[in-house]
Design a protein around this nucleic acid. Structure first.
Lengths: 330, 330
DNA sequence: CTGTTAGCGCTTTCAC
DNA sequence: GTGAAAGCGCTAACAG
């Protein structure tokens, strides 16, 4: 059924029906009510392609995750997408997905009102120029590092430092003085470099001997923890760059005949699913993905609907306290 | 620029231009070539809303993952979505995402040509009726169990048995006779119930004493492995329902002073990311998600484009051989 | 092979 | 407050 038939049934003109359906002021309340009820009753839904054609609005944003340039692992991508879908949906926008699995980058930017781009460090200003149709399509970029030099887009910057700072402050509060750092090899978004300063921020002394670039596996974490605890003056707390390393570190500590958190406190990073499942559940650093999604979509919709200037906003990580941290042993 | 302006520049009628762009036969090769080149050069792209309106085709399929009814964890969802996007894209279809994060189920089924539905055991025929607009919108359902009673949809059934059968056959070939089973508590899609038969299929004797319903964490797997190996007549191989359990089992075996795969072989299930990272890398059972995606989209497109009858197809798991399995000790 | 024209279903002036 | 009519940009049927 189209609007003509529907209007005929109601004995109204299509103009009035359209106005009622669009919630315009010029239509009388009782007419509007009647139209809405009848539409519901008869199951009349307007053809959205026709609407889009005539209005020029698509009510559609595309979630863009260029291949191999995610900051977010697949697990988090879904969580982010959920958030994006939720707040986009609340504003009447549908979500088109572009994971970049296909070679063809012939993105019909005219079909969407805006872009949410999940960017890794490899994403360049040139890529953004291409993706945004030369900056003409509103876009918000979710980025872990400093934004690329492309001012036509909005940005949501993910800042890992606050959570780590919070973690170290907590350790300091718990009386820890010597904190070991277990890294994951390739410098992860500068965290390794920032660590000494973060320690200082927490009022802790930074001892380079207490830092190990371990690797990716739990076993790497296990070995790193053992090495650290075997030191003449061992740390009483361990910060691991990833939860995977942290879970291994817990094993390592246990193998050395010590307990977590009784003798040694362990803090992880990322809040992977397993972090809550291991024994003891890991205190870890996380970012609130629904918040990220909401901020991104709000930034985007602001420029789509009000034509506002692009914005740059930052969202920090925070500490999730579970049971792998305790007071420093006396 | 619209097609009128574009045609004017080319000194052609819009009809000819449209035919050239649609790759119709009635247009002369040189005209077509010219149109295509000029379109590229001038950056002319047809308005797809107008096209959709007039053709009635949306070139859009929606990936539907109703909240909390996934068979696939988030990690795999992305992998599946990649595959769906790839083959859908190859056929000119875009991908709309509906994760079911929003309450509003007012799905405008008229906007898409078909649905790919990822269904968990909770998804009922009634849900499908609703999702498919009363069976009017073509749909393919990816399902781990037996298909719900809703014949209007196509199905891709995920069958976990072949991979497990393959795993047990391999163990039998390697000379193992006693195989322990480490389950994950709630019966996972009937695998627990099917296990004795699968053992028989592989020519192995099934001993109920060698089955433990462990849990979800690595530690559960660790304890289960220790319990199994402490038996008077212990197994020489362990099959774990999940890779998480399997990785814990490896720890447990090691703690008992035995080696993997020297003394005990371990096989996991699911092929999570970590399965390849642990030490030794886990032999495990997996399903080829790109294949699942391809099969699903092909099934769907068949009914969309040719109006064929819905189909039911099954795709089995298979064994991924890594290093956690070896010959049974003599 | 190409040009002309009638819609697709809707929104939005412009009259009334 | 409502009705009539002019498009939105395109495809496809119909002439030529």
């Amino acid at each position: 059924m189209n609007i003509v038939e529907f209007a005929k049934i109601l004995n109204l003109s299509i103009g009035t029906v359209s106005r009622a359906l669009n919630d315009r002021a010029e239509v009388s309340p009782k007419t509007r009510k009647m139209v809405l009820e009848k539409a519901e009753e008869l199951g009349f839904v307007r053809n959205s392609n026709a609407r889009r054609l005539v209005t020029g609005r698509n009510c559609m944003i595309r979630l863009e995750c260029p291949h191999r340039t995610h900051i977010l692992s697949d697990q988090y991508l879904v969580e982010l997408a959920r958030g994006v879908e939720e707040v986009a949906g609340d504003n009447g926008y549908d979500l088109l997905l572009h994971l970049g699995a296909r070679r063809s980058d012939a993105v019909d930017v005219q079909d969407v009102d805006g872009l949410v781009i999940v960017a890794g460090p490899e994403l360049t200003a040139g890529d953004l120029l291409h993706l945004t149709n030369g900056g003409r399509t509103p876009a918000v970029v979710i980025v872990g590092t400093a934004p690329p030099d492309f001012p036509a887009a909005s940005y949501v910057c993910l800042d890992t430092l606050p959570g780590v700072r919070e973690a170290l402050t907590r350790l300091a509060t718990l009386g820890h003085r010597r904190v070991g750092y277990i890294g994951s090899g390739p410098p992860g978004y500068g965290l390794r470099d920032a660590f000494p300063q973060l320690m200082a921020d927490a009022g802790l002394h930074w001892d380079p001997d207490l830092a190990i670039e371990a690797g990716l596996t739990p076993d790497d974490g296990r070995r790193a923890a053992r090495a650290l605890l075997a030191l003449p003056s061992p740390p009483t707390a361990l910060f691991a760059r990833t939860d995977v390393l942290a879970s291994g570190a817990v094993q390592g500590v246990t193998e050395m005949g010590k307990t977590v958190p009784g003798d040694v406190s362990v803090i992880g990073h990322d809040n992977i699913e397993a972090a809550a499942l291991v024994n003891p559940p890991l205190t870890t650093v996380a970012i609130n993905l629904p918040d990220v999604a909401a901020l991104a979509v709000e930034s985007l919709l602001a420029v789509i609907t009000t034509g506002a200037a692009p914005t740059v906003r930052t969202l920090g990580t925070h500490l999730i306290v579970r049971r792998s941290c305790g007071p420093a042993p006396v």
